[in-house]
Simulated assay, not measured.
Amino acid sequence: MPDLILYQRLFAPEMDVHISQTLLAKRWVQVDASLPLLHIRRADLTRKRRSELEQFIAITRGLLGRAPQQEAFLPDILDPRLTNLAFDIEDRLRLLDTNRLINTKALRRLPAGEKLDIRRRRVHAKWMRRLMLMESAFCGRHSEDFWYDPLYTRYLDRQRFDALFADSMAAGEPI
């Protein structure tokens, strides 16, 4: 997705310094704050916006699908108000903060057949919950669809799905 991630440049005073000694400068982009993604649904979107979100979700699912075989970094969709992913004023989807990409190392280390400990791996659990919310809101999927989706059943069983759905409802983000 061209321009999903803003142009950015990392400055370091010298080679091999700790990340805390660096500065990341990004191109500023004006976003359309009138429709925060957390509070809209498929019917609220133009065809172009719906298409961009569907493409983003497909790419993101692909990254999660590769996690058992190779390390990947998942886009940060964990912002409490989901403002890290937004449309700019030209209707292009933008990932605004790439400082907190989610590493899949813990998912890759999960033995085959073992399910994700959603209490111990809260970041990954919340990330999957958010992706399911986005699929529900923007692709028309229902919670029951996820019970049979091999992408999610690799990490979740029925009890874990129910716990994530309950967490989602409690957060005001019903899937």
Score class of each variant (00 low, 15 high):
residue 3 D to R: 00
residue 4 L to Q: 01
residue 4 L to M: 04
residue 8 Q to K: 05
residue 10 L to M: 05
residue 13 P to D: 06
residue 14 E to F: 00
residue 14 E to S: 09
residue 16 D to P: 00
residue 16 D to T: 00
residue 16 D to V: 01
residue 17 V to G: 02
residue 19 I to V: 06
residue 20 S to D: 09
residue 20 S to A: 08
residue 22 T to C: 05
residue 23 L to W: 07
residue 24 L to V: 03
residue 25 A to H: 07
residue 26 K to N: 03
residue 26 K to T: 08
residue 26 K to W: 02
residue 26 K to A: 02
residue 29 V to Y: 01
residue 29 V to Q: 06
residue 30 Q to L: 13
residue 31 V to T: 06
residue 32 D to N: 08
residue 33 A to F: 13
residue 33 A to I: 10
residue 33 A to C: 10
residue 34 S to E: 13
residue 35 L to M: 12
residue 35 L to R: 12
residue 36 P to H: 07
residue 36 P to C: 07
residue 38 L to P: 04
residue 39 H to V: 13
residue 39 H to G: 13
residue 41 R to G: 13
residue 44 D to H: 11
residue 47 R to A: 11
residue 48 K to Q: 07
residue 49 R to G: 08
residue 50 R to C: 10
residue 50 R to T: 04
residue 52 E to Y: 08
residue 54 E to L: 07
residue 56 F to V: 10
residue 56 F to C: 02
residue 59 I to E: 05
residue 59 I to K: 09
residue 63 L to R: 06
residue 64 L to C: 01
residue 65 G to T: 06
residue 67 A to S: 05
residue 69 Q to S: 02
residue 70 Q to T: 03
residue 73 F to E: 11
residue 80 P to A: 10
residue 81 R to G: 05
residue 81 R to I: 01
residue 82 L to Y: 04
residue 83 T to S: 09
residue 84 N to M: 04
residue 86 A to G: 05
residue 87 F to V: 01
residue 89 I to Y: 09
residue 89 I to W: 05
residue 90 E to L: 07
residue 91 D to H: 09
residue 91 D to I: 04
residue 91 D to S: 10
residue 93 L to P: 04
residue 94 R to A: 07
residue 94 R to K: 10
residue 95 L to D: 03
residue 95 L to S: 01
residue 96 L to I: 03
residue 97 D to N: 07
residue 102 I to W: 03
residue 102 I to Q: 06
residue 103 N to M: 07
residue 106 A to F: 08
residue 106 A to H: 11
residue 112 A to F: 02
residue 113 G to I: 02
residue 114 E to M: 10
residue 115 K to W: 11
residue 117 D to E: 15
residue 118 I to C: 13
residue 119 R to H: 14
residue 120 R to I: 09
residue 122 R to S: 12
residue 124 H to N: 11
residue 124 H to C: 04
residue 125 A to V: 12
residue 126 K to P: 00
residue 127 W to M: 03
residue 127 W to R: 01
residue 128 M to H: 11
residue 129 R to P: 00
residue 131 L to E: 00
residue 133 L to W: 05
residue 133 L to G: 05
residue 133 L to Q: 07
residue 134 M to L: 10
residue 135 E to M: 03
residue 135 E to G: 01
residue 136 S to R: 09
residue 137 A to T: 02
residue 138 F to W: 04
residue 138 F to Y: 07
residue 144 E to P: 15
residue 144 E to K: 15
residue 145 D to G: 09
residue 147 W to G: 13
residue 149 D to W: 04
residue 150 P to L: 08
residue 150 P to K: 09
residue 151 L to I: 14
residue 152 Y to P: 11
residue 152 Y to V: 15
residue 154 R to G: 09
residue 155 Y to N: 06
residue 156 L to H: 11
residue 161 F to P: 12
residue 162 D to P: 13
residue 162 D to I: 15
residue 164 L to N: 12
residue 165 F to C: 13
residue 167 D to A: 15
residue 168 S to N: 14
residue 173 E to N: 11
residue 174 P to Q: 15
